[in-house]
């Protein structure tokens, strides 16, 4: 099984002044197989979104490579690269309020990709737009309206239609449901699942809601302060976490079941995610880890496969 999209040592720093750089994403290698959903979880500030955007070329890479169908993508995209790749790779953004241009009608927003990337006539574009509006559960005559006339859930559907109209192969969904109400979250998740089936999509699903990520994904990758700490089958990572951070993350996730909550010993993780500026050497989680050892503070653990498992863990407990 070869990967559809693969990152090797992907790194992205942001320079914020003399000798100061934010290590947003550091040496992340992740492969996504065709028609797979990989969930990426982590606290805010762990670099999930930066990883997604760097992967798509929306941010320039500081180091590392991205491969798409075996082809190494350029470090810096030219307009021609964007034209070619944005037909194949798309993104759905977190905030359905700021990611739609308020001065464009919904029809213009959704149809823009087709107008830029194909030579379809205006009429054909409009036809596709209205069929996509139908597919995402809106109606064709919504095309002439403006984003402010829609609710959050409807706007997220518009964002989905905009990403899907070019029929991409790979879509990065950056917290697509975080801003929505519970009942609407389920609508959008089910819509994504249907589209995944009908279009044969491959998704990178970025979210901080562990239960939702477990529900949606085939595999789960856990990120902490710019690095991956654990990757494996979604259910296994959730129910049998290996890395101490994953364990604590799962332990903090409230279950909608009072029995479980009463039985649960409070597994609260102490402290907060440290600043990603000028990170000290060693394991990035060492400062908060309950199982920290001396070696953790000096040597950075690598993401290595466990012996009898398809699980990858970056922790000295397993080396």
């Amino acid at each position: 099984m070869s990967a559809l999209v693969e990152t090797i040592g992907l790194t992205r720093y942001f320079e914020i002044g003399r000798d100061q750089r934010v290590h947003a994403v550091e040496d992340v290698s992740l492969a996504v197989a065709p028609r797979e959903i990989v969930g990426l979880v982590g606290e805010s500030g762990s670099g999930k979104s930066t990883f997604g955007k760097t992967l798509l070329g929306l941010y320039r890479k500081t180091a590392g490579t991205v491969r798409y169908r075996g082809e190494t993508l350029p470090d810096r995209y030219t307009p021609a690269d964007f034209r070619r790749l944005s037909r194949k790779m798309q993104m759905i953004f977190q905030d359905p309020y700021s990611s739609l241009n308020p001065r464009m009608t919904v029809g213009e927003i959704i149809g823009e990709g087709l107008r830029l990337h194909t030579d379809l006539s205006k009429k054909e574009v409009n036809g596709r737009v209205s069929s996509w509006l139908d597919q995402v559960g809106l109606s064709g005559d919504h095309a002439s309206r403006y984003p402010h006339e829609f609710s959050g859930g409807q706007r997220q559907r518009i964002g989905i239609a905009r990403a899907m109209i070019l029929e991409p192969e790979f879509v990065v969904c950056d917290e697509p449901v975080s801003a929505l109400d519970v009942s609407v979250q389920a609508q959008v998740i089910n819509l994504l699942a249907e589209l995944k089936e009908s279009l044969g999509l491959t998704l990178l699903f970025i979210a901080h809601d562990l239960s939702m990520v477990r529900h949606v994904s085939d595999r789960m990758a856990v990120m902490y302060l710019g690095s991956l700490v654990e990757v494996g089958a979604a259910d296994e990572v959730y129910f049998e976490p290996k890395h101490p951070y994953t364990e604590l993350l799962v332990g903090s996730n409230p279950e909608p079941d009072p029995e479980i909550e009463r039985k649960r010993a409070s597994a609260t993780i102490q402290g907060e995610i440290p600043s990603p500026v000028n990170i000290p050497p060693g394991c990035r989680f060492a400062g908060r880890c309950p199982k920290v050892m001396d070696v953790c503070r000096g040597v950075t653990p690598e993401l290595i496969p466990l012996r009898d498992d398809d699980r990858l863990v970056a922790c000295h407990l397993y080396t």
Binding site: S183, V184, A186, R214, H215, Y238, P256, D257, P258
Partner: peptide
């Protein structure tokens, strides 16, 4: 949670993912 009486309460509950390995329940929006 265990004796939900109103359909809206039930609706909210089944719209959320449950972390139970034995049940791979679908989300019902």
């Amino acid at each position: 949670f265990y004796r939900s009486a109103h359909p809206y309460t039930c609706g909210l509950r089944s719209a959320m993912p449950v972390n139970d390995r034995s049940r791979q329940a679908e989300l019902k929006p």
